Amino acid sequence: MEKIVLIVHILTALGIVALILMQQGKGASAGASFGGGASQTVFGSEGSGNFFTRATAIFAFVFFCTSFGLAIIAKNSANIPDEAIPAMIESAPAMSDVPTAAEEAQSDVPSVDVPESTDDVPAVPAE
């Protein structure tokens, strides 16, 4: 069942791409109102907007449904009960980006010696 849904999903995605590439932009129909020769096209003087727009909407709906179906199939095949997820999150070790003192001692970066008192440092540079 998963393979069938996946094949339909991929074919729908390719169909959406093809339909979008075949559509004309909004500015392309402006010449048709001034007699741009669009009355002799395959889809008539209105252009192909209605056909491609409806077909794209149908393909988008099928794509959404197959995406949702694949998500449900993936969740069911994971074999993890819903009750175990909060317990797994709580039992995970806490990760921190702040290094500990032991990690700092093993670092290759040299440390900077900061003087304890600031009496040696003048507040205003000498001129």
Rank of each mutant, 00 (worst) to 15 (best):
E2R: 13
K3E: 15
K3W: 12
I4D: 11
V5P: 03
V5H: 00
V5K: 02
I7S: 13
I7P: 03
H9E: 05
I10R: 08
I10T: 10
L11S: 09
L11C: 10
A13Y: 04
G15V: 00
G15S: 00
I16T: 04
V17T: 11
V17P: 00
A18Y: 02
A18I: 05
L19T: 11
L19D: 03
L21E: 07
L21R: 08
L21H: 08
M22H: 04
Q23P: 11
K26W: 07
K26E: 06
K26S: 09
G27D: 07
G27P: 00
G27Q: 05
S29M: 13
G31F: 09
A32W: 00
A32T: 06
S33P: 07
S33K: 12
F34G: 14
G35D: 04
G36F: 00
G37I: 04
G37E: 02
A38D: 05
S39L: 01
S39H: 01
Q40T: 08
Q40E: 10
T41G: 08
V42M: 11
V42P: 00
F43P: 04
G47W: 01
G47T: 04
S48D: 15
N50Y: 15
N50S: 15
F51D: 01
F52N: 00
F52E: 00
T53E: 12
R54M: 15
A55K: 02
T56K: 01
T56C: 03
T56Y: 02
I58A: 06
V62D: 01
V62K: 01
F63E: 05
T66P: 01
T66E: 03
S67G: 10
F68T: 06
F68P: 01
F68Y: 07
G69K: 00
G69N: 02
I72H: 11
I72C: 13
I73A: 05
I73E: 03
I73L: 14
A74F: 11
A74Q: 10
A74T: 12
N76L: 14
N76T: 13
S77L: 14
S77F: 10
I80L: 10
I80Q: 07
P81V: 06
P81N: 09
D82R: 08
E83P: 00
A84D: 07
P86L: 03
P86C: 05
P86W: 05
A87S: 07
M88V: 04
M88T: 05
I89W: 05
E90F: 08
E90D: 14
E90K: 14
A92R: 03
A92M: 07
A92F: 10
A94H: 09
A94V: 09
A94W: 02
A94T: 08
M95H: 13
M95R: 15
M95G: 13
M95E: 13
S96K: 14
P99T: 07
T100M: 03
A101Y: 11
A101G: 10
A102C: 07
E103I: 09
E103V: 09
E103D: 08
V109Q: 06
V109D: 05
S111D: 13
S111R: 14
D113F: 09
D113E: 11
V114M: 08
V114D: 01
P115L: 06
P115W: 03
P115R: 04
E116F: 14
T118M: 06
D119W: 05
D120W: 06
V121P: 02
P122R: 01
A123I: 13
V124F: 14
P125V: 09
P125I: 11
A126E: 15
A126P: 15
E127V: 11
E127T: 10
